[in-house]
């Protein structure tokens, strides 16, 4: 079983990402269980989706310290979600900050903390993805990078098929490009 936590901010497309991941896993015959944040927090608040792929999951929520992989759509939300990661887990994080009011440390401090505490960290150039494909494609780019690193039970090609089934052709094309662009950002090691 693979436990995958998706963390981001309301409006970033975390729910679509969990649906695509779930559809790709189902197409491989895997059981899927999970939970999403829907409602008030969607208005720009912190949101998490719990996605559990494979047999044996009873709870829709992942317990802290048990996620094999965290997909983080924003570096601050990655820090917030870190307690869920297994000691030897993977984290895929977009480095593009979503601005907010109120005091906080810098993005550099967040990323430094992640580098010090995450054994397998992959950083996605979120700014480049947003510039080339629009910020709404960040979700599929992160999925692409996560699949390319072998952290998910499905491949980039499986996700591509799930995309084609989900979107009308024009949007599917754009999203497939973003998926590939994300996959190509995988760094060795």
């Amino acid at each position: 079983m693979t436990d995958c936590l998706i963390a981001g901010l309301g409006g970033q497309g975390t729910i679509l990402a969990s649906r695509l991941l779930g559809a790709a896993a189902l197409s491989l015959g895997l059981e899927v269980r999970g939970s999403e944040t829907i409602g008030m927090a969607q208005r720009g608040g912190s949101v998490v989706s719990h996605v559990r792929l494979g047999p044996g999951a009873e709870s829709p929520l992942i317990a802290p310290g048990r996620a094999e992989v965290i997909l983080a759509f924003e570096p601050g939300e990655a820090v917030r979600a870190l307690p869920f990661l297994k000691p030897d887990g993977w984290m895929i994080v977009s480095d593009r900050e979503i601005k907010s009011f109120g005091p906080s440390d810098s993005v550099a401090a967040w990323l430094g903390y992640l580098r010090a505490n995450v054994p397998h960290l992959q950083v996605l150039d979120g700014r480049k993805i947003a510039q080339n494909f629009g910020p709404r494609c960040l979700n599929v780019a992160i999925l692409g990078l996560a699949a390319a690193c072998g952290t998910l039970p499905c491949s980039v090609a499986d996700l591509q098929k799930a995309l084609e089934a989900k979107f009308e052709p024009r949007l599917a094309g754009l999203n497939k490009q973003a998926l590939q662009a994300g996959a190509e950002m995988a760094q060795g090691g």
């Binding site: 969607q42 720009g44 608040g45 802290p64 310290g65 906080s104 440390d105 967040w110 903390y113």
Partner: peptide, 19 residues
């Protein structure tokens, strides 16, 4: 026990806001 994590950096509060 959960994995001990020391001194996380300060994060912004993310209350829901009007779009």
């Amino acid at each position: 026990m959960a994995r001990p994590l020391t001194d996380p950096p300060l994060l912004p509060a993310r209350p829901p806001v009007l779009c």
